[in-house]
Structure formats: C-alpha cells, structure tokens
Design a protein around this nucleic acid. Structure first.
Lengths: 250, 250
DNA sequence: CGACATGTTGAACCTCATCAACCGACGTGG
DNA sequence: CCACGTCGGTTGATGAGGTTCAACATGTCG
C-alpha cells in the first residue's frame, strides 16, 4: 500500500528522482538541492475510488501532487444536490495556499496515487524559494481559466454540447499525452475517468440525460463506445462542432 | 474626463494618497515608498456602461484596480450565447499575470473608474516586491472560490434560487460596506449594478425568466422593488433560504 | 411627438428532469 | 451451483421548469 516502501529502496533515493511527474508538477521548478529537501517531507498515498481526500468540513494540513488517477472537487447544497467544480489529473496540484479551510471536498474518482506534503513544511519551502510559489500561482490561474470555461458550459450549453465538450476535453488530453510517444494519431481513444453519475455532477445534468446524449453521439458516429468506459473519437473536429466550438481556436 | 487632472493638483500628490481603495486594493500591501513608485506609472480612466475594457481577441498591456463601478468578465460562444464569468467591484483587480492574452472580455457594466498600470512596469514592481505578488495570488484564489461557487449555482440551482443568490450576494456586499459607517442595519438595500440582460448572462437564464423570478420574490415579500434598479431586503435570512443556502454558514 | 432601449407579462413549446422498468456484471451466502 | 441483492448503466413515458415568441408598458432622448 506504500509505493516507495515496496521496492525496498530507501525513500530518499526512491522518491522524486523516479517520480513520473517530477518535471511536470510544481516540483518541476526545483533544482536537485531543493528537490532533496522536498523529498524529505513528502510521502505517497494510494486511494480507492470514492475515498474522501479532503472534506469541506475539516481543516486540511497537507498539499499534494497527483501522480496518477483522477480526483474530483465537489460542492454540495444543503439538500444534497452536488456539483463537481474541478477535476484533477496527473501533474496537478491539490490544496489551497493561505487557508486551512477548503470551500469544497476532494474525492478520488478512480484509483489515485498522490504525493503529500505537510502544510507548514511546504509553505516554508515555498517562502524560501519564490519559483515554487510562482508555479503555484500559475497553476491557480490555470484552474481559474478552467473554472470559467466550465461556467460557460454550465450556463449556456445544451445537454449534447455539454457531454461533447467533456469528451472533447478528454480526447485532447489523451492526444496531448499520446503525442509525446507516438508521432500523431488523430484518432483519440481513451478511458472515461468518471461514472455516469460523476459526469452528471460535472456537467450539471442527470445520469439519464448523460446516458442518452452518449448514445446520441454514438448513433451519430461522432464517438464509438467500445465498452461503458472506453471511448474512441474518429474525427475530433466533428466532436468539437458537437461541443459548440466551431473549429479553430483552443 | 480625467479624475486627477480635474483638481489642478500635480498627479503624484493627488493619486493614491487620496485614493478610496488605497488600503483595500492590491496596493494595500505597499508602503509609502512603494506606493510613490506605483503612482508614477498609474493613471485613472473612466468608462461608460457597455464600453469594452479588454477584449479576448487583442493582447492586453495593462493591469488595473477597480475604483468604482462594476465590470463584467464575459465569455461568448461562436453563435453568440454569452456567459458572465466574473463580476469586479470596487477594490478588485483586473488583468491576468503571466499572460498577454485573456480568455475572456471585460466590459463596463456601470459607470466605471479604474486605475491602470502598464504591464511591464507593474510586473517589474511585483518582482521587486514579493508582498505585491502574494496579494495578487490571494486575489486570484478568491476569484477561483467565487467561480466555483458560481459553478454550483449554474449547474444545480433553480431559476428562483439563482436570482435569490445573486441578490443575496449584493445584499451582503452592501451590508459589509454599510457596516463600516453605520452600526448595523439588518435591512439591506442597494442598487442593481446590472441590467436584466446582464443578470441573465450572469445566471445562465433568459431576461424573461429573471424578470419573472424578481416579481415572484417581490410578491412573496422576500424583496422590495423600489424601482427597476433599487432593491430592499427586509429579512436577509429569508433571502438566503430562497437562495438554497439554509441559514448559518458563509 | 415618435423612435428606441429596457423591462414586464402572456401563451406555446421544448428540453431536460423525474419516475420507473429493465439489463448485465459482480459478489455473497445458502 | 444458483438464487439474491447491489451497482452501474440504458431506455421509455410523463411532466415541469425555462425558453421562445410576441405584445405591451415605461422611460428617455433627439
């Protein structure tokens, strides 16, 4: 249950140097000396789907990098209606600077592996090293952009556009990641990191509507559903059109 | 048309020292020496309702503090559907660090007065003075929280709750501001900074629905409409309930 | 005064939510 | 081994909440 320990190597040697997100996450801003300090306060954790990572009730005493899997940030109304306000993937950063209390909860959507740092130690490191702070700032700006994109989706898009937009986001992500390895395959295929229920909570819809729109997109040959979770996009431009983004930008 | 010039005083003396947001805006983090530097690169601007301040097309070469009025940040779909993704009031900061291009437009919603700084000079100041950068970071975190609150509203709230939530936000704002002067009046009354059309774009609704929900809240005695723009809230807790927030927190 | 912008109200329509039945996969216990 | 419940997902029927279209009211400005 503990990634570092399972190899038998001392933690300090094992960690960070072999970390898959060493150069993409916030740690990317740090040099060898810095990273050594960081690795001394870091430890990995595995979570199973549905497991709560942070709650909007209790104070949080750690930050974390996402190493693998997907984490959903959720907000809930008193009567139980829920909205996913953010989705965190591989090199993303979890946690809010300058505040112990979180206005939302974080929950593992899939199997998740994270790398945790105690609050205080990490903040001290950040104040010593402005590059780290700047990286956090940058990441927050990206999250803000994403949140505002999603506001447009939630407020103004139709159910079909919403589902298509979500798939488009994942398709682009999978192409981005894929392109580093292969040359370029314009056929994106990927696995859905969310259940229908989570998709509904992310898109401001119901489970049923999500399901229906998926089958609509399937019968229109915009996507292929190999299984409940496996999706292929033969023509990404058609998907973009279905998402209401008239080709070109982005 | 130029606030500083109209008094006949030299700009450097006039500016900042008498600025109404001197201690609340990002400049609040700066001491006398810093603020003198800042005042040398700053200049005020007035805008009329509807005037575009920054466009998502063109690059932006300035930051700005909002001194008075309301600014709306908007995103638009290719077919014209629009969503307001942020609203800026008096001590707020306009502009995005680390990026020339903006993913949204900014437009004056009311009469607006802003205090502009050229991009490069301001960023140099920020790098000299980490307190300023941190203040910007803080402000960005607040914007992110607000955006995510709004995602919950857009995705999960009913039309009535949306309108009530918007009014509640303004009511609380007016109480916050009012409390500094008067002791405490639990009767909030304020002026709507947005037209019905803008409210619709903010709430993900149509003009007609906004209008109808306003009259519903009026006939239910949750609010009083003195004119199209003037609102009074006799019992703010009832408004909070109508907004779907079961008393207490926030 | 008429033209125009802003806002309200009514009627018809449509998208999406709700309620319900059903399916297949999986795990568990008799 | 199979009956059983559960979970995630699909599909259908129905209806409500909001959009759309249209008429009208009000206020402002030339």
């Amino acid at each position: 249950m503990h990634g570092a320990a399972s190899t038998g190597l001392p933690d300090v040697l094992q960690r960070c140097d072999h970390c898959p997100v060493r150069h993409q996450a916030v740690c990317g801003a740090m040099d060898e000396v810095q990273i050594r300090k960081l690795s001394q306060i870091a430890h990995r954790k595995r979570m199973v789907p549905g497991q709560t990572i942070i709650s909007d009730e209790e104070p949080v005493d750690f930050f974390a990098n996402v190493i693998s899997g997907a984490i959903k940030l959720t907000k809930t109304l008193p009567d139980g209606r829920q909205q996913i306000v953010g989705l965190l993937f591989a090199p993303d950063f979890l946690g809010r600077a300058y505040s112990k209390s979180n206005p939302y909860s974080a929950e593992a959507a899939t199997e998740v592996e994270i790398c945790c740092f105690p609050n205080t130690a990490f903040e001290r490191l950040a104040s010593e090293f402005p590059g780290l702070q700047q990286r956090l700032f940058q990441h927050t700006l990206d999250e803000l952009d994403a949140a505002r994109d999603w506001m447009l989706l939630l407020g103004r898009k139709t159910a079909e556009e919403k589902v298509a937009s979500f798939l488009l986001m994942l398709a682009r992500r999978s192409l981005m990641i894929g392109c580093q390895h292969t040359g370029s395959a314009s056929v994106a295929s990927f696995e859905l990191p969310l259940t229908r229920a989570d998709m509904a909570d992310y898109l401001g819809l119901t489970i049923e509507t999500v399901s229906r729109q998926l089958t609509r997109l399937k019968t229109a040959n915009v996507i292929k559903l190999h299984s409940n979770r496996l999706i292929a996009v033969p023509d990404i431009d058609r998907l973009a059109t279905a998402a209401g983004q008239e080709l070109g930008h982005y």
